[in-house]
Computed example of a mutant assay.
Amino acid sequence: MSGKRTQWVPDQHGAWAMLTVPYAVGTFLGHPVWLHLPLFVCWLLAYATAFHLQQYVRLRRLSRNPRAAGRHVKPTAVFAGALAVLGVPLLVLRPWLLVAVAAALPCFAVNTLYAWRNRERALVNGLLAVFPACAVLLVALRLGGGTITEGVVPAALCFLYFAGTVLYVKTMIRERRNRRYLYGSIAYHAAALACAALLLPMAAVLFSCFLLRAAVLPGRRLRVRTVGMVELACSAGLLTLLLSFS
């Protein structure tokens, strides 16, 4: 039973913080309403649908085993069906959400193209996925009666952090022997620290910690679980910082 469940749940564990932190910030910076709950479920269903669809597209092109792609058909259909059942009433109640959906489609299309080309781990592809994940903060904030202007700084800080994780995690796992990635990650985090300090001076301490971990931890042969726990702590710190806006 657990094996079947594993096949349904997307295995990109690092994505969950990116899906939840900006949404939570947008929800609680505004005024939480009951519609935030179904919208959050739709957000997760959209991610799961996109994940399985892109895996189907990738494996259908590359794998000689038809079952490899076929095992993603049912999850795609179930998640997409649930998304439609829950999402259509939301769009009827809040038609402006169509604008948010339309804005996310180009990123989804490019991510799907990268999946078709079997280049999901490409740096550009990872950075593109960060855009809608952080922009959902603005959607959640607007749903609670807030304004886009109020969410610009928190969304920008989310992007600065999560874009950095794309680089940092590569230096810890897939590109751990690539010095160019390491130097690029350190340079990015230094620039992100400067930008964050300009946007919100009190963010400088937290982003200094992000820079420190990007400079010190690569090369220390940490377990993947440990890398994940560090990122969980960093995400919790970001969430705490941004909720101080409220």
Rank of each mutant, 00 (worst) to 15 (best):
S2H: 12
K4D: 13
W8H: 11
W8R: 13
V9A: 09
D11H: 13
D11F: 07
H13F: 10
W16H: 12
T20H: 08
Y23S: 14
V25L: 01
G26W: 01
H31V: 13
H36L: 08
L39S: 12
F40K: 03
W43E: 05
A48E: 03
H52W: 03
H52F: 02
L53Y: 12
Q54E: 13
Q54Y: 07
Q55I: 08
Q55F: 13
Y56S: 11
R58A: 15
R58E: 15
L59R: 14
R60A: 15
S63G: 11
R64I: 09
P66R: 01
A68C: 10
A69I: 09
G70C: 01
R71V: 09
P75A: 06
A77Y: 05
A77T: 05
A80H: 01
G81D: 03
A84L: 02
A84T: 00
L86Y: 02
L86I: 01
P89D: 08
L91A: 02
V92H: 01
L93S: 04
L93N: 01
L93Q: 06
R94W: 07
P95K: 06
W96I: 08
W96L: 00
L98Y: 08
L98G: 14
L105I: 07
A109K: 04
N111P: 08
T112G: 06
Y114S: 06
Y114T: 00
W116N: 12
R117N: 06
R117P: 06
R117K: 09
R121F: 08
L123Q: 02
V124I: 14
N125E: 05
N125V: 04
A129D: 15
A129S: 15
V130A: 09
V130H: 03
F131G: 09
C134L: 08
A135L: 03
V136P: 06
L137P: 04
V139A: 02
A140G: 00
R142S: 15
L143V: 09
L143I: 05
G145T: 05
G145A: 06
I148H: 10
T149G: 12
E150Q: 11
G151K: 07
V152M: 14
V153H: 07
V153C: 10
L157Q: 01
F159L: 14
F159V: 10
Y161G: 10
F162M: 02
F162D: 01
A163L: 06
T165K: 03
T165I: 06
T165Q: 00
V169C: 12
V169Q: 11
M172N: 11
I173V: 15
R176T: 12
Y181M: 02
L182C: 08
G184Q: 04
S185T: 15
I186C: 10
A187D: 05
A187V: 09
H189F: 03
A192D: 07
L193D: 02
L193C: 09
C195H: 10
C195N: 09
L199W: 08
P201K: 12
A203H: 00
A204Q: 10
V205E: 13
L206M: 02
S208M: 01
F210C: 03
L211T: 04
R213K: 15
R213C: 07
V216L: 00
V216F: 01
L217N: 00
L217V: 11
L217S: 01
L217Q: 02
P218Q: 07
G219S: 10
L222W: 07
L222R: 13
G228I: 04
V230I: 14
L232Q: 08
L238A: 04
L239H: 10
L241C: 04
L243E: 04
L243A: 05
S244P: 04
F245A: 15
S246Y: 13
